[in-house]
Each structure stands twice: as C-alpha cells, then as structure tokens.
Design a protein around this nucleic acid. Structure first.
Length: 879
RNA sequence: GCGGGGGUGCCAGAGCGGUCAAAUGGGAUGGGCUUAGGACCCAUUAGCUUAGUGCUUUCGCAGGUUCGAAUCCUGUCCCCCGCACCA
C-alpha cells in the first residue's frame, strides 16, 4: 500500500468536500475540541507536536462520529519576541518572518490530516484580530480593570522588557533564562485580583487534573490571617500575620528592603544612607542560589514601632527576606516561633521571647537552636496565658477586633497581571497621555491602532520609540499635543480569548458574535502542555469572567475539561530541533506514513505520561497497521461456526475502544482493537461472509480516529461510500457480550488445536476416529489414548496438549471460592456446557479431520482411573 | 519546607480486590517458510517439578485488612515534577 498516495488522496477529498466544516446547529449537541494554538516560530513539526495534535484529532473525530456538532479549529499565536529577535538578527521584518512561518507550519499541519475546520484559521498578529485586543483593553480600562500603576516589577535585561509574575521561573526569564531583576516602574496592569475568589472557587467546577488544579490554587495562594495595626511615629502600619497567637512574642519588625515606602520611613534618620544603599543592593539579582548564599541580611532603620497589644516599643529593620508585594510588605518578627525570624535575630543579636510552650518540655530562649513552630500552650501572653495556641489565634483576633487594633482578613499571593511590554511585536496599547486630560483611550472608531512600520530594529531598547510619527499625537479629548503609549501588550492577552474568536472568526463588527460564542463555549476538551498552568490558563479564566460581566457571553469558565499531554522524549531528552534529537514529521511520513506515527504515539503510553520515542516501537506499530490492512485484502467465505463469538467480541471491542477514548486512554483502545484484528485473522475460515463484512466495517470505523487515511481507503475497498470519517460511531449491546459463550467457544477451540497437534506430533494423517472426553477428566483419557499410540513422541505430544488447553479447563475455573460463586456465576462452568461446546464444534471437527468424532462422558467411563491419578480437590474447595 | 505524581516481568507499559505468573508492543530463544536475508507465521520467555499437574517466589521494602491483595490501609525507602524566605 502506498501510504503517501493514500494520505494525499484522502486529505484532498476531505478538503474538497469540506467535510469538517461546521456551523452552529441548534438541533445537534455541540462539542468544542481545542489544542493550544502554536507559536509559529519553528517552521517544522516534530513528534511532540504530532502527539498533541493527534490526541485532539482522535477526540474530534470520535465525537463527530458520535453525532456531535464538533468545532475543531487551529490558529497561530503569532505575536512575540522570537519574531522580533529574528528581525533584529536577519533584518527581516517580523511580519514577513511570521507570515512565512505560518505558511510553513500550516502546510505541515495540513499534512497531518487532522480534521480541523480550516476556514476558521486565525493569527493574532493580524490587525483584524488585535483590533479586539485593543477594544477589550479600553473596555477593561473603562471598568477599572486595566490601570496604570507603579510597582516593583520583574525586568529582563536581555529581553529588555518587563515580565509578568507568571513569566518568571525560579528567578529567571522564562524565555531566555536571564536573571530577572526588580525595578520599580509605572506599568499597565489588568486587575486579575478583582476575580481572585471566583478564580479560586470555580477551580472545583473544572474537569482538570488534580495536579494542575493544585498548581492554580497554590498560585492564588489564599491564606486567612489578621491585620494588626502597629504604629511608627504615630502613623499606622498595618501588618499581616497568620500567627496572631504569637503577638506577645514580637521583638522586632522587618520591612521589605524593596518596600515602596521605605524611603519615606527612613528619611532624615542617620541610618538613611546605609539603609537605602542596602535597599539598592537587594533590588539586584534574585536567583535562588544567590539568595541562599547571601542568607538573611538586614539593616536597622533607626525607627521603632509600637505593638498595639503589648505597647512594647520594638526596633524596625529592613530585610532582604521580606517580600514587598505580599501581605503588607512588613512582618512582625517572632524569632522564637518562626525559623526565618529566628535566623535573622541570631545574626543581628536581637532579643528572643518564648510565648508558646510545648507540653512535654520547657523552652528557654538562651538554649534554643531553632524556632519552635509546633503547637503548644501560651505563656508570657497576659490574659491569654494557658490557652492552646490554635484557640488563641481566634481569641486574640477577637480581642484585636474588639479594641479596633486590626481585623480578620484574607490574603492572596496572586498579583495583578502586568501586561505592558517594551517591545515591538505585540498589540499596541491604545492609550494617549495628555498633559491636561491625563490618560485618554484611543477612540474606538480609530481602532485598530496599527503597529508603526517606520521603526528601526537595530537600536537598543524598544523599537517603538524610533517612530516619532507614532508617538506624537493630538489628544482625542482636547486636541492638545500628546504622547502615545509605546508599550505593547504581552502575548498572553492574545491567547486569552482566541478560543472565542474561533466561534465566529470572520466577524467584522465585533470580536465575536454573542450567539456563536454562547453556542460553542465553553471549550469541552482543551489539550495542551502543563507549562501553561499559571500563565495562560489563569489569564483566560480571568478574561472569560471579565467579558461575561461586560455582557459579552454567558459562560463562567472557558475550558471545561483540560488534558495535559506528556512530553515526547528521545534519548532521555525532550525532543527539540535545537537539541538535535527531534524526529520530524516528514521523515516518519516518508518511511511509514502519518497513520503509523499516529498509532504509535497513541499506543505506546498513556497520553498524560511522558514517552520515549523508539525506532523499534514504530516498526511494531507499522506491523500493526499492515495486519489491519491485510484483513481487507481477504474475502473469505467461511462456514460461520465462529459467527456468534465474533459478534460477542465485536461488541466487547466497541465497548473497550469507546471507553478508552472517553477516558483518554487511547492506548487501551488500540490494544482492544488489535486483539480483535488478531482474532479475525485467526478465525478467517470460520466466519460467514456477512459477519465478516460487518466485523470489518466495525474495525474500520473504530480505527478511523487513530488512522483516518488508511481507514478511508479500507472503507472504500469494502464497497462503501465515503466517508468513514462521517460514519456513525457504533454502539454496543451489553447483552451481546457473552463472556460465558466466549469461554465455552474457547474450550472447543482449544480442543481442535489439541487434536491438530496430537495428530501432527504422532504423525497420524488420517485418523479413523477421534474420541473426546467431557468434563475435567477428558484430557486424562486423551493422555491414555496417546500413550496407546506407542509413539516415541508421546511425552512431547501430551505436554504440548496439556500446556495449551488445560489452563482453560473447568478445574481451574472451579477454584473460585464457593462463597463468591453466587456472585460470579459466569465463572463457574457446568459440565453440561462443556459438553455442549464440544458437541457444537463436533461437526466442524469432523469436517476438518475427515473422521468420526465421538464424545464420551469421562466422568462415568474413567471415574475410577481418574480418581487415582488426579490430585485431591484443592483444599479451598473442601471448606 | 509545602504541594502533586510515581516505583509492575529483559525493556516500554497496561491492570488498580477474585477469569493475574499479570494485557499489548519491543527484545531474546527455538521452530516453520525461503536459495539466503527481510517480511510473515507458530511456540517459549520467574524458578523447580509432573504424563496431566503441583509447588515456591514475584508487581520498591515492612506490616495490616480480607476467605482472597499488584490492586485497599499503615509505616518506610527511593524517583520525578510544580511552588518556594508567602509572614
């Protein structure tokens, strides 16, 4: 079979007939399948991509065949730094670079034969798309959900731009790996924190893996605590703590070295210069290694705070270990009961005061070598002494609230979404700064605000700054001279709503039609890498909720079910072109065809697990494909003795394949399919034409999501009209799955092969008569018969017969404990049924061996002998 | 440190209370086919043992629940992956 020709043939036909084109259809239930859209930098596909896309395609095809109206689109996340860097390096305009990359990658994707609706393709760098980024930005601005604010932000010197928290991994830039530094800059933010509670609570509604749900919960990082109002110089400094039970043990305060109000605090003190120098130092490098090396560092601010509960006056320090952006950016330090505070206190010889005593020992400040963080009883805590510390948290907080010294509160780790980027290849932020009117949005009718063309990529810094024409504008409100924002939006803006654009991609007047979005959304099955756990997957959730509240759509969550596929490795490393270990789509297609690659990728491991690419494995899959195809090359006219069994197995196979796809266990689906294919091969001779055809049709339909091209071809070969891709997915009838019958048939089956073997080994060509003995002992008799042959091979004959057949026989099955026998009646065989199995197959056997078959009740005829020879009943049966 | 996921036969990888010495593929060994190789087909692939069979050991390690455990519980060791000075 010429796989290449078949692929081309069917891909062409699918495209010509537009069979995967969809539109809204209120009569059909919708199903939206989506893979995370790719960044089109690399103009090739390797097996990692193919694995991802194949999963989506399997689901899409399956659901389509089940009668769902399936939306399955593809597009390109085409803004971003790589295109801009390529432009810098090679002197190509990012737009040209990007369009080329899209053309290339799309050709590769089309060659996969996935059932995308290619009429819906989109690319985020095109003005008809990013216009709506700008529109949404203005709407968010109007709602107060987009704002400009000064905050300590992450800055990557190499990329020369600020980064969102979600783009910093272990203190390094996610893209280039450069150390991220902190700067205090004025930037645009989207207020994700306005939806914190909803983002957290709705996680429970999602059909996502526990792992990724947990990552999101951690990222949101909700914690209950208390705000306690300390005072410094009469001014209130609220401090967040989860351990209000230790408030009597506070011996100093630590303010973050990067706290925006630090400068104000130390102004005019003699410590000012040294503290500010320390602060500057802390703003540099934040890599994990360096922090661990440095340890905790601090500087005394010269100020004292008053503990509102005890009225103690305690020193205020600036410290490198306190995060400016979490809580209040300042902590109350309880060195006896917090390890970090303990280390800091030891280093700077600050006092310790125990306020929680464990039950079994006595803590002494002078003897402590680490903080005591377990539970215990309060001491040195005034009226709260002798209370368990867990209870004390509540009691002390109640007291604080009653005296108006603070309040209960909830704190989150999640920050607002920093969206500005000082880069060119992104959506221009549609804002204008006017000296009189302040920040003014670009009027809607002027959208899209296009990226300027007259920019230079060779200078350092943001290329946008090189276009004076772009920057100098008139204020839309007052007409005075004004300056346009030169920052662009980070790429996560683009990917936060692309799945909605797919619903009505050609819409010109709005970002999407409400009608189509309300029909298609949410995405029923989203598939992509886990690396987007806190970036894209949080932003998209936020965006959906924000758009919902603007009345643009109905759903609360964008992605109902999410599946994170495993990575494809080769030689133990992640497959990538730069690592030189990528297996490319085209080389595999050349040797094996894309269907073999799909089969292998779906078959070798559970979809969520990482898998190792192996060339031996792909060979194996190639064989499987061949085996399946060769079924369709036969047209046997069998006798039909195995028809019943084939039907039973067919229903079982349908059941298993269906369950496999539904549960994202594609590997198990394929195994079930293979077992059926093998069985059909073996039983070719014993299947009637009608059943054979039915069986092959079923195989063809069941296999089609995995190897669509080959199945179309086989489908045609069977004389069916195209397309198998549009066939109805078969349903199974549990009643037709007859395990008992299958097992009985198996017995009869084994008998035949035993006979064959015996004849062969004994070198008997034409037996005059074959006697079969029923029940457990028939084989015993058989042995006796073989012995009588007096042949040299007797031992060998008997052994091979016994090995293959007795395992299946009654005796093993009867081992089931009697108690459970009632529950599992199908596992207990009665002699009658065995006899029946033999009788049923007798005719076929007579024909095959061309002699008379006699069936004898071994129970009667050989009881005596059998009793002597057989071991006693298994002990368990005697009970 | 916190959180998540794992440890299965030569390898990969299913199974997740009884049809489990454990699917499926790969590999290995033997046999068939073939001028030969490849492809294909068949058998074997924990150990001992029998004519059938039986027994022992095996699903990281140690216990427990159960008539019965790879599967459930407890402890323990190891591995991988997130987050991480979050007050």
């Amino acid at each position: 079979m010429d796989f290449k020709a078949i692929q081309d043939k069917w891909q062409k036909r699918w495209e010509e007939k537009k069979i995967f084109k969809v539109k809204e259809n209120s009569k059909k239930k919708k199903f939206y399948v989506l893979e995370m859209f790719p960044y089109p930098s690399a103009s090739y596909l390797h097996m990692g991509h193919v694995r991802n896309y194949t999963m989506g395609d399997v689901v899409a095809r399956f659901k389509r065949m089940q009668g769902f109206n399936v939306l399955y689109p593809m597009g390109y996340d085409s803004f971003g730094l790589p295109a801009e860097n390529a432009a810098k390096k090679a002197g190509i305009h990012p737009k040209e670079y990007t369009e080329n990359a899209i053309t290339n990658i799309m050709a590769y994707q089309k060659a996969l034969g996935n059932s995308y609706d290619w009429d819906r393709v989109l690319a985020t760098h095109r003005p008809e798309y990013y216009k709506w980024n700008q529109y949404f930005f203005i709407k968010l601005f109007e709602k107060g959900l987009a704002y400009r604010g000064e905050a300590p932000v992450n800055f990557c010197d190499s990329c020369n731009t600020v980064l969102a928290n979600e783009e910093v991994e272990a203190g390094k830039c996610w893209r280039c790996g450069t150390e991220v530094t902190t700067k205090s800059l004025s930037q645009w933010f989207l207020k994700t924190t306005a939806y914190t509670e909803e983002l957290l609570n709705d996680i429970d509604k999602l059909d996502w893996s526990d792992k990724i749900k947990e990552i999101q919960r951690n990222w949101i990082g909700k914690s209950h605590g208390t705000i306690i109002n300390f005072t410094i110089d009469g001014k209130v400094w609220p401090v967040f703590t989860t351990r209000s039970d230790t408030v009597f043990g506070v011996t100093f305060m630590v303010i973050s070295a990067q706290h925006p109000k630090l400068k104000e605090l130390v102004k005019g003190t003699k410590e000012e210069t040294s503290v500010m120098a320390f602060s500057e130092k802390c703003k540099k490098a934040r890599s994990r290694e360096e922090i661990e090396e440095l340890g905790k560092e601090g500087a005394f601010t010269g100020k004292y705070a008053v503990n509102p509960i005890t009225n103690d006056k305690i020193p205020v320090w600036a410290g490198n270990f306190v995060l400016a952006e979490y809580g209040s950016g300042m902590v109350m330090a309880v060195p006896t009961h917090d390890q970090r505070d303990f280390e800091f206190a030891k280093k700077y010889s600050l006092p310790l005061k125990v306020v929680i005593q464990p039950k079994n020992k006595q803590l002494k400040e002078s003897e402590m070598s680490e903080a005591y963080t377990e539970e215990g009883i309060l001491v040195n805590s005034g009226q709260f002494n002798n209370i368990e510390n867990k209870t004390a948290i509540e009691k002390i907080t109640d007291y604080i609230e009653s005296k108006n010294l603070g309040k209960r509160t909830v704190n989150y780790k999640i920050r607002d979404w920093l969206i500005s980027r000082q880069r060119y290849w992104g959506t221009p932020i549609p804002m204008i700064y006017c000296e009189k009117c302040g920040i003014v949005p670009v009027p809607e009718k002027e959208l899209p605000l296009l990226l300027p063309e007259d920019v230079s990529f060779t200078e350092k810094g943001n290329p946008m700054l090189t276009s004076k024409k772009f920057q100098n504008v008139k204020c839309p409100k007052c007409g005075a001279k004004a300056r346009r924002e030169t920052d662009t939006m980070g790429g996560f803006m683009d990917s936060s709503w692309y799945f909605m654009r797919y619903c009505s991609p050609k819409e010109k007047k709005t970002a999407f039609s409400k009608e189509s979005v309300d029909y298609w959304m949410p995405v029923d099955q989203y598939i992509g890498g886990i690396e987007h756990a806190v970036g894209h997957l949080i932003y998209s959730r936020f965006f959906t909720k924000a758009l919902r509240d603007m009345g643009l759509l109905k759903c609360d969550e964008p992605f109902n079910a999410l599946f994170n596929q495993g990575i494809v490795y080769r030689d133990g490393k992640k497959m990538s072109k730069s690592a030189g270990n990528a297996v490319m789509q085209d080389e595999i297609v050349k040797d094996y065809g894309i269907d073999t690659a799909r089969l292998f990728l779906m078959f070798v491991a559970s979809p969520e697990k990482e898998m190792e690419w192996s060339s031996a494995g792909i060979e194996g899959s190639f064989r499987i494909v061949h085996k399946l195809i060769s079924l369709f090359e036969d047209k046997p006219k069998g006798n039909g003795t195995k028809d019943k069994l084939i039907i039973s197995k067919m229903h079982r196979t349908i059941k298993e394949v269906t369950a496999g796809i539904e549960g994202f266990r594609f590997n198990n689906s394929i195994i079930a399919l293979m077992e059926y294919v093998n069985y059909l091969h073996r039983e070719k001779e014993n299947i009637s034409e009608k059943v054979w055809n039915k069986a092959l049709e079923t195989v063809c339909v069941l296999a089609s999501p995995f190897m669509p091209h080959i199945c179309e071809e086989c489908w045609e070969k069977l004389g069916n009209k195209p397309f198998v891709s549009l066939e109805k997915w078969p349903s199974f009838d549990e009643k037709k799955i007859d395990l008992k019958a299958e097992a009985i048939e198996q017995i009869a089956d084994n008998v035949a092969s035993d006979i064959r073997k015996v004849l062969e080994l004994a070198k008997i060509e034409k037996p005059a008569k074959i006697t079969l003995f029923t029940a457990n002992k028939w084989k015993y008799e058989l042995v006796e018969q073989v012995k009588k042959l007096n042949t040299r091979n007797a031992g060998e004959i008997i052994k091979s017969v016994m090995q293959t057949s007795l395992k299946q026989h009654g005796q093993d099955v009867m081992k089931i404990v009697p108690k459970l026998a009632e529950k599992l009646p199908e596992f207990v065989f009665e002699k009658k049924e065995e006899e029946k199995a033999l009788k049923d197959s007798a005719a076929a056997l007579e024909k095959e061996f061309n002699c008379k078959i006699e069936i004898v009740d071994a129970e009667k005829s050989t009881q005596q002998k059998a009793k002597q020879a057989m071991p006693a009943k298994p002990a368990i049966l005697a009970e």
